[in-house]
């Protein structure tokens, strides 16, 4: 099964690029990603640009609305994701728990819907 791990954290409190904390975080992410690759569960994974760069679209009655910002203002913002290929939820949770942001943010794990072919 494929699982997506959505990484949420409070951007305002995230380490700023260039700081020691930031480089420590990068090292931790690299090491976690290596584990995912070595264990053969890594499908994809990327960090996202800041929530300030988000654009939200909504089309109602043929009118396309383009809005500056995320679809909802929340305390923690989506900042990145991983996709894992795992046998079951326990395995997916095990790997998701290795994502460094689990220590200060939240990781939401969801199965990716399996659409049968044909």
């Amino acid at each position: 099964m494929k699982y997506i791990a959505l990484i949420y954290s409070n951007e305002a409190k995230d380490p700023t690029p260039g700081s020691d904390e930031f480089s420590a975080m990068i090292t931790q992410y690299q090491s976690a990603t290596n584990t995912f690759i070595n264990d053969g569960v890594m499908v994809a994974g990327d960090p996202l640009e800041s929530v300030n760069t988000a654009t939200t679209l909504r089309s109602r009655n043929g009118n396309l609305d383009t809005i500056d910002g995320p679809f909802a203002e929340t305390k923690e913002q989506l900042g990145g994701y991983y996709i894992f290929e795992c046998d079951n939820l326990d395995d997916a949770l095990k790997y998701a728990a290795m994502i460094p942001s689990v220590k200060h943010g939240s990781i939401e794990v969801r199965p990716i819907m399996n659409i049968p072919e044909g």
Binding site: C86, D87, L89, A92
Partner: peptide
């Protein structure tokens, strides 16, 4: 079923 909670 959908989230794959294992039977173990």
């Amino acid at each position: 079923k959908q989230s794959g909670i294992p039977y173990i």
